[in-house]
Simulated scan of single mutants.
Amino acid sequence: MNAHSRTLLTVICEAALEKRLLADLETLGAPGWTISDARGRGHRGVRSAGWDTEGNIRLEIICNRELAERIAEHLQVRYYDHFAMVCYLAQVEVLRGERF
């Protein structure tokens, strides 16, 4: 097995931001992403996934560390003050390194 080290940036935020975030990721050069619905409770209370724009989404991007940090910084500056959003980074091993 030939594994390659990459960074996983996970973003959990309001579903209403999805279109804006996808435009940002395209502009910032993200190689790809995965989006799923998310439910939970946090600083801003309980969030359900009952309505398209009321729930939360979980956005995951696997890329190099530099790009992950640049995307996270952009999200922090642009969205943290006005929207429910959490970002975290984790080191991951991928098998097809050329794709990330």
Rank of each mutant, 00 (worst) to 15 (best):
A3K: 13
H4N: 10
H4A: 07
R6T: 02
L9C: 04
V11H: 04
E14P: 01
A15I: 00
A15W: 11
L17N: 05
L17E: 05
E18C: 01
K19S: 13
R20V: 01
L21M: 10
L21F: 03
A23C: 03
A23F: 03
D24Y: 10
D24R: 09
D24C: 07
L28E: 01
L28V: 04
W33S: 08
T34R: 09
A38W: 02
R41V: 05
G42K: 05
G42Y: 07
G42F: 06
H43T: 11
G45I: 02
R47E: 05
S48A: 15
W51N: 15
T53Y: 15
E54N: 12
G55A: 02
R58N: 01
E60M: 12
E60Y: 00
I62F: 03
I62Q: 01
C63L: 06
R65C: 05
L67T: 02
L67A: 02
A68E: 03
A68Q: 04
E69C: 07
R70G: 00
I71L: 09
A72L: 08
E73R: 12
E73W: 06
H74V: 06
R78A: 15
Y79I: 01
Y80T: 11
Y80V: 10
H82V: 03
V86I: 14
C87H: 03
Y88T: 05
Q91G: 13
V92P: 04
E93P: 01
R96K: 14
R96N: 11
G97Y: 08
R99C: 10
